[in-house]
Simulated scan of single mutants.
Amino acid sequence: MNEALKTAYSPCPNDTFVFHAWAHGLVPGAPALDVTFADVDITNGMAERGEFDVLKVSYAVLPWVLDEYALLPCGGALGRGCGPLVLTSSPGTAADLRGGRIAVPSERSTAYLLFRLWAAAEVPEGVGEVVVLPFNEIMPAVRDGKVDAGLVIHEARFTYGEYGLHCLADMGEHWERTTGLPIPLGAIIAKRSLGAERLRGLAAAARASVRMAWETPEASRGYVLAHAQEMDPAVADQHIGLYVNEFTADLGADGYAAVRGLLTRAAAEGLVPPLPEGALRLD
């Protein structure tokens, strides 16, 4: 019998919702998972070090890990109207960020790439210092004046008003308006050393787990809320509704185009290494 696959994903509601059935042995024929919870900046580092078999990572880290890992065509997070936000303590414009101090959750995140692409167009003079903070510390830092602005992700889309903050710009809105593509956020990757047949089986397991979550959403509710870091259940539902969609079941042509588009544009700006032709496809 094969050993459980070492797997890491975040405790965020979209990930626990997607993986619930698989992690609990409810997907027929799917391999067992040995799950570690870690935020995406941690899982990105795990992928770069080749530490786990299956990981949820930022699409932004793919150019550094695709030699060792394959992208699964399902289970990840893309969408529309779900991009990262730049928040400030008072209303303003992009020009206000010239030379400013900006907090971001990671420099190896999709959010950061989207921010840098936006800033290249909207703040050509350049922002100032970029400070990396855990995502849950960013809004307090903006509120308390420790930074001039913060790039936020996850449920902060729904809660920033509670901190008295203002949305200066929506990175996803800029991306969608300039490309017409969905916003690529998080990807599921697996070790290429598992072999092509097993990788296809993992993709099938991820897809089945997503569909089971949709068919019986109440089954995963306890698991989701237990790991949601004291998140209000209504916010957790909003989170799932925003980040788990048709692209989670299958990337499809638009999903692949979005990922290629992001990484191609980021490479042109010198933010990531160029992506080899065909590197995104499982087969």
Rank of each mutant, 00 (worst) to 15 (best):
Y112C: 07
R116S: 10
A23D: 09
L225E: 05
Q238D: 01
N14K: 15
H239D: 11
V61N: 06
L194H: 10
A258R: 12
Y9A: 05
G201E: 03
A8D: 13
L168H: 02
V86A: 06
A32H: 01
Y243M: 15
G128W: 03
N14I: 14
Y223G: 04
E173S: 13
L242R: 09
P233N: 05
L87H: 04
E122W: 03
D237Y: 00
I240S: 09
E68S: 15
P105V: 00
C82I: 15
G99L: 07
P105T: 01
R157S: 12
E173H: 08
L62Q: 09
S193D: 14
H154W: 14
A203I: 00
E269N: 04
G150Y: 00
D39H: 07
V35Q: 07
A38V: 07
E107Q: 07
M1H: 15
Y160Q: 11
P140F: 02
R157W: 13
A253I: 09
D67H: 06
G50I: 14
A236K: 05
L66Y: 07
R108N: 11
D15P: 02
V132W: 00
G241W: 05
I42L: 13
L117W: 09
W64M: 12
G186D: 15
E218I: 07
L202H: 01
I183W: 14
P11H: 06
G50S: 10
D41N: 14
L71C: 06
P28H: 01
D250L: 11
A8R: 04
C12V: 11
W64A: 13
A190V: 04
K6G: 15
T159P: 03
A228G: 14
E122T: 08
G83P: 00
S106F: 00
A206P: 02
V210N: 06
I153G: 03
L133R: 03
D39G: 11
C12N: 12
A156K: 13
G100Q: 05
V104E: 03
E230Y: 10
N245R: 09
L133V: 02
P274A: 13
P134A: 03
I153F: 04
T36V: 15
R200W: 02
Y223I: 01
L97A: 07
P276L: 07
T248R: 06
T216H: 15
S220K: 10
K191N: 06
G186S: 11
G161Q: 03
A95Q: 11
G29M: 00
M139F: 02
Q229E: 13
I183P: 06
L85M: 09
L199Q: 06
E269L: 14
V65R: 12
A60G: 13
T179Y: 04
G172I: 08
